[in-house]
């Protein structure tokens, strides 16, 4: 048996296993640390930085940082919430997110995160940069207007599907999700049954011919905020 250690998150002492990340330990204890790029079953990506917590005063990403005995962690403080809200605001202003007309509305983790963190109206300037839409595949759209570069599809396609259909291209503000083909997604072995097809937190990867299938009231975040599943534990 491995020895349990104690850490403190927002004043609450919880026990953690050696080798766990802060996020894993918090999840197990029913404490939600906001995240967008992390997905259970995939290695952490460290892209969105929403899960940043302060460990003994120093900011680290909870999805990658290992627990250690006696850590004092600041998670849901006003300061951390404000910093996270600002990141979500940045993501809204960076891409082109029109919630009312988006099929993912109600199931979208970005939108749900904005609600949870209390983002009312962005103060930052919108970039309004046109982004490429790839509708070449018979079953799936790639609408990069809605992409937040979380890299979940990239990791899932490589590690869960064994295909490496997706990757990144470019740098800085011009970074985008690329496909493993000369031109477009239909040239790849991507399939609607792939794990990568089901893992997008926003409406960037969307099923064709299945629009607005779930009635309002029954969508993922109609009944409770994002993270409620963890907090119910």
């Amino acid at each position: 048996m491995s020895q349990q250690l104690k850490i403190v998150i927002d004043g609450k002492e919880i026990s953690a296993g050696p080798g766990q990340t802060i996020m894993e330990a918090a999840d197990a204890a029913g404490i939600y640390i906001p995240r967008l790029c992390f997905h259970e079953g995939l290695p952490p990506g460290g892209h969105c930085r929403l899960c940043t917590v302060k460990v003994n005063g120093r900011p680290v990403s909870a999805c990658t940082f290992p627990v250690a005995e006696g850590q004092v962690i600041e998670n849901a403080s006003e300061e951390m919430t404000a910093l996270r809200r600002k990141i979500v605001e940045m993501l809204f202003c960076e891409g082109n997110h029109y919630c009312p007309s988006c099929e993912a509305s109600g199931n979208c983790e970005l939108q749900a995160m904005a609600y949870r963190l209390g983002l009312l109206n962005p103060q930052l300037p919108y970039l309004r940069k046109p982004r490429e839409l790839d509708a070449s595949h018979k079953d799936i759209y790639v609408d990069r207007n809605r992409c937040i570069l979380c890299g979940r599809c990239v990791r899932a396609s490589k590690l869960l599907d064994g295909k490496t259909v997706f990757g990144f291209e470019g740098r800085g503000i011009n970074k985008r999700v690329a496909v493993d083909a000369e031109r477009s997604l239909n040239e790849t072995p991507f399939s609607v049954t792939d794990q990568a097809a089901k893992i997008c937190p926003t409406g960037c990867l969307t099923l064709k011919r299945k629009g607005w299938a779930i009635p309002v009231g029954q969508r993922a975040f109609d009944k409770g905020p994002i993270g409620a599943d963890i907090e119910r534990k």
Binding site: I87, L124, P125, I148, L149, R171, I173, K175
Partner: peptide
């Protein structure tokens, strides 16, 4: 910094560009 941001993480990728716009204003 806008030019040299690698784009991996959201705050640096989007934040530097947005900041640049605001400073220009």
């Amino acid at each position: 910094f806008v030019e040299e941001s690698c784009g991996w993480c959201a705050p640096c990728r989007a934040g530097t560009t947005l900041m640049c716009k605001m400073v220009e204003k």
